[in-house]
Design a protein around this nucleic acid. Structure first.
Length: 274
DNA sequence: AATTGTACCTGTCAGC
DNA sequence: TGCTGACAGGTACAAT
């Protein structure tokens, strides 16, 4: 479900609601999302702790807690956090409930059950698999056009595959990959090593601009995504290719192609994207 | 070493 | 109406 702009929006929506709040109780309805420690230890460790800070890295949410603990969450396809009053009805697929002060609750809802929770000492954050291997944050100064160019050199893989690789750049998923490639006017199956200097410059600009615009519109709500206040995003109204197979290209009027690459739906304009 | 395919799980929607 | 199969904002691990 959520890519960088959605996770950023969720983070921003949760900061004013949960930071400073104490976890009085943790209710586990389904324990399959908890990777470590054992669910009962997870529950015990969290009770009495306070949410001190919340950060995003790639598509991960990092909850910093008292006791030098960090709760690392990946929402995968359908994970959601809902900040609600205790009296609100419990939705189907509510797997975890963090009971907070003033009859408020932070609930984790995840129909497909793919999301992950790791509760670890903050000192171990740099050892957590997945998190530790992430490439640069695309909206930080760590991400440069020179660095992007180096990552592309001598690679035969298709550019879309590279954009989805979290070790190269953190946070891009299937929607934004397609939108970025449309923006840069690059065919998704182009070999990385064959991109021209101009194409690489457009790609760099596309990554920064499309992700920034996604955040400006508070993410893309196509089927499941909502933020911590259950508000939908607005970027779905600005998508140029994703989900628009068969429709005319906004730039040239040709029909948008929907194909499949590496098991993922892939949308592009066969005229604009060469 | 680098890339691709498969598994994980539930819901929805198109086509019969 | 069902039923069936394909597909869905992702990643870990197995297989090439």
């Amino acid at each position: 479900m959520p890519e960088l702009p959605e996770v950023e929006t969720i983070k921003n929506s949760l900061i004013p609601t949960i930071i400073g709040q104490k976890i009085n109780q943790v209710i586990i309805n389904y324990n399959g999302n908890i990777r470590q420690p054992e669910p009962l230890v997870f529950q015990k460790l969290l009770e009495g702790k306070v949410f001190l800070d919340l950060q995003r890295r790639g598509k991960y949410l990092l909850f910093f807690l008292s006791g030098d603990l960090a709760m690392v969450v990946h929402l995968r396809m359908t994970g959601q956090f809902h900040y609600l009053k205790r009296k609100e009805p419990i939705k189907k697929h509510t797997h975890l409930i963090f009971c907070l002060s003033h009859k408020n609750e932070l609930r984790y809802v995840d129909p497909r059950k793919f999301g992950t929770f790791d509760l670890i000492p903050q000192a171990d954050l740099h050892t957590l698999k997945g998190l530790k291997d992430l490439g640069p944050e695309p909206l930080s100064s760590d991400f440069t056009s020179t660095g992007l160019k180096e990552a592309l050199q001598n690679k035969k893989r298709p550019i879309k595959s590279l954009l989805l690789d979290q070790k190269i750049i953190a946070g891009i998923g299937n929607i934004y990959a397609d939108e970025i490639l449309f923006h840069a006017q690059i065919h998704p199956e182009t070999n990385c090593g064959k991109l021209t200097h101009e194409q690489i410059q457009r790609l760099y600009q596309g990554i920064v601009q499309v992700l920034t615009l996604g955040i400006t519109h508070r993410g893309t709500s196509i089927r499941d995504y909502v933020d911590g206040e259950q508000e939908q995003g607005g970027f779905q109204n600005f998508l140029q290719v994703y989900g628009r197979g068969g429709e005319p290209c906004s730039r040239c009027g040709a029909v948008i192609i929907k194909g499949k690459m590496m098991g993922r739906g892939t949308h592009y304009c066969s005229i604009c994207q060469q």
